[in-house]
Amino acid sequence: MSGNWVIGITGASGAQYGIRLCEVLLDLGLNVHLLISDAGWRVLQDELDWQVSKRQDELEKHFGGRLGSYEYHPNANIGATVASGSFRTKGMVVIPCSMGTLSGIAHGSSDNLIERTADVMLKEGRKLIMVPRETPLHAIHLENMLTLSKMGVRMIPAMPAFYNRPRTIEEMVDFLVGKVMDSMEIEHSLYRRWGDTDEQPRP
């Protein structure tokens, strides 16, 4: 299994979703290009106690030594490889996606690397998957989602399921990450599917 995937983490609550997705992809031997907004770093600090003053150390601690490789691109670096359509990738996942980032992508702003890379996915016809995390939603949020959905963007709101009887936060995270990986067309066993008789262990 091989290929490049771009993962964008923004300032919406739910940073654990993005980190867990990166971990699973790397453990499968895939290559991850990681983009984190400044607000995303703030949420990593607030929700997961990351030391954002030591960004590279934190990235290496969580993602180093796995089967796949990762490369971190600062969000201000719009000259990064992933900002060009000539750089080959399987697609991009923005997880979690703030409403500000969603708006920027829906309107083609390309004000930072996350927005520019998403714009590349749209123009090149590659997979673009977004995990919006906000509640309640007002009309502008919904209109922006509809705009992108009409362009083929897959919207996977950060909504946990309970039919599989999750016992921990980790199992709830794995369910959402598994739903994202379904849209990425990547095989996994992160959650028990409807009709399955066996619990799937967290790897």
Rank of each mutant, 00 (worst) to 15 (best):
H73M: 11
H73G: 10
N75M: 13
N75S: 11
A76K: 09
A76C: 10
A76H: 09
A76D: 13
N77D: 15
N77W: 09
N77C: 06
N77E: 13
I78F: 09
G79M: 10
G79E: 07
G79K: 09
A80K: 09
A80F: 08
A80P: 07
T81Q: 15
T81D: 14
T81R: 14
V82I: 13
V82M: 06
V82P: 01
A83C: 15
A83K: 01
S84C: 03
S84P: 08
S84E: 04
G85S: 04
G85V: 06
G85P: 08
G85F: 04
G85K: 04
S86Q: 12
S86H: 02
F87V: 07
F87C: 08
R88D: 09
R88W: 05
T89V: 15
T89S: 15
T89F: 05
K90W: 03
K90Q: 15
G91W: 07
M92G: 06
M92A: 10
M92W: 01
M92R: 05
V93W: 02
I95D: 00
P96T: 08
P96M: 05
P96Y: 01
P96F: 03
P96A: 04
C97H: 05
C97N: 10
C97V: 09
S98P: 02
S98M: 11
M99D: 03
G100Q: 11
T101D: 04
T101S: 12
T101N: 13
L102Q: 12
S103T: 10
S103L: 07
S103Q: 03
S103K: 02
S103W: 02
G104I: 00
G104K: 15
G104E: 15
H107E: 00
G108W: 02
S109A: 14
S109T: 14
S109R: 14
S109P: 01
S110Y: 02
D111I: 07
N112W: 15
N112Q: 13
N112P: 13
L113Y: 05
L113M: 12
I114G: 10
I114C: 12
R116D: 14
R116K: 15
R116H: 11
T117D: 13
T117N: 09
T117H: 05
A118S: 12
A118E: 08
A118G: 04
D119E: 08
D119F: 01
D119Q: 10
V120A: 00
M121I: 01
M121S: 00
L122K: 02
K123P: 07
K123M: 02
E124H: 03
G125N: 01
G125A: 00
G125Q: 03
R126G: 00
K127D: 12
K127M: 08
